[in-house]
Amino acid sequence: MEQLYQQLIIDHAKDPHGKGLAEPYAAESFQVNPTCGDEVRLRVHLRDDGTVERVSWAGQGCSISQASTSVMSELVEGRPVAEVEGLGEDFRALLHTRGEGLDEAAEDRLGDATAFTGVGRYPARIKCALLGWMALRDALVQAGVASTTTEEA
């Protein structure tokens, strides 16, 4: 279980990054996890050059969902939208490795988000870790800047 709840996750859950909705914003997404009632409202703030300035969010949920949204907020700050989408794909892939992890290059890209590798061993928690990422992708689609609109749980 310590593999699941890395110290980094517990720390982010206690003191989350990006929490608190900010203005102005390019788009907003509201996502719920119907099995547990967890919810996140996330806003994406874009720069004129098409990079993600930051995300801001509000919500309630388990430590995995809160920490994952927090780590994501740190990770995507100042990055081009295409890169953010790539990180989202990397993160989804990471969670579906059943705890095995990805190659070194992908893990380098994900940085602190690799702390969620252990979530892949607990299929019921994968949705928790993805809640914020789903909201971010949806917000990017709504903002009209996402290159892909494919849906994935």
Binding site: Y5, D38, G61, C62, S63, R125, C128
Partner: peptide
């Protein structure tokens, strides 16, 4: 201070 999901996990 602990979400139900996390309680269940422990």
């Amino acid at each position: 201070g602990v979400h139900a999901h996390d309680v269940g996990q422990v």
